[in-house]
């Protein structure tokens, strides 16, 4: 049960951020970046497929990845609040991506040594994709932060708005501790300090400041989502709800 719960958290982060990035399709600021964002979206959806299919196997109730992705209720999604936040402008999207990628890269590096072979294999494959995502989003954060007055002001604003969702990246509960004891989750206690280092290096280059207001939100990991989640899910689930079991 703990493992199922963890796989939902991992898979839902990929699924929901993948869905958000897919909303950019055809709306990117420039053709090349439109393709880059949808490529990243497809990487994330691919990760969600592997993780949620595995979650279905672990659960043993006959649900596959599709059933988990498309037919759960909002409170049963366990993704971070960060990934369900609206796209906003291009700077908001890149900042959200950057904060998430920095965390995901470190997480997958660790998960490679999970005693769960399947999880370790998924982490190893996803790490390569995530390293590129991080490189791309970090390059953009640097260019927008250290760009024009306008771009600096706007992306600093993105950081101010998104920072409050970053504590949840390191959310740990009793369920995780059981997995750590079993070696399925490696020791992740220093993940936050490594993440801060990584993030600070880029933000320094970008001449951006971490906001001093340290009020933090959480809830996604427990299935308590922001007001944006329902709209996102209604679009994500539309086809399966209207045409149950449809395939193409």
């Amino acid at each position: 049960m703990e493992k199922f719960n963890y796989l939902l958290r991992l898979g839902d982060d990929s699924l929901i951020l993948g869905q958000r990035l897919a909303e950019w399709c055809g709306h990117g600021p420039i053709l090349e970046e439109d393709i880059a964002m949808t490529n990243i979206s497809l990487d994330l959806i691919g990760q969600a497929i592997s993780v949620l299919n595995y979650a279905g196997d672990v659960e043993c109730k006959g649900r596959d990845g599709d059933a988990l992705a498309f037919l759960r209720l909002e409170k049963d999604y366990k993704n971070l609040l960060l990934v369900e936040q609206k796209n906003g402008d291009f700077g908001d999207t890149m900042m959200r991506q950057f904060l998430f990628d920095a965390y995901r890269k470190l997480l997958f590096e660790r998960l490679q040594s999970s005693t769960d072979k399947q999880l370790a294999a998924i982490a190893e494959k996803s790490l390569k994709e995530t390293r590129y995502h991080f490189k791309h989003s970090a390059e953009w954060v640097i260019r927008l932060g250290d760009g024009t007055d306008e771009s600096h002001k706007r992306v600093q604003n993105s950081l101010n708005n998104l920072w409050r969702y970053t504590d949840e990246l390191f959310y740990v509960d009793a369920s995780d501790k059981v997995l750590t004891k079993q070696g399925i989750l490696p020791d992740l206690s220093d993940l936050k300090s490594l993440w801060l280092q990584e993030v600070n290096t880029v933000l320094d280059l970008a001449t951006l400041q971490i906001p001093t207001n340290n009020w933090q939100f959480e809830g996604g990991r427990k299935g308590v989502h922001s007001e944006h989640m329902g709209y996102l899910l209604s679009e994500l689930q539309f086809m399966q709800r209207v045409y149950p079991n449809m395939e193409w």
Binding site: L31, E32, E33, I35, N39, Y132, H136, E139, R143
Partner: peptide, 14 residues
């Protein structure tokens, strides 16, 4: 099109 060499390589990759 790309703003600089580094992003040109990344865009070309994509």
């Amino acid at each position: 099109r790309a703003p600089d060499a580094q992003l040109a390589v990344e865009n070309a990759r994509d």
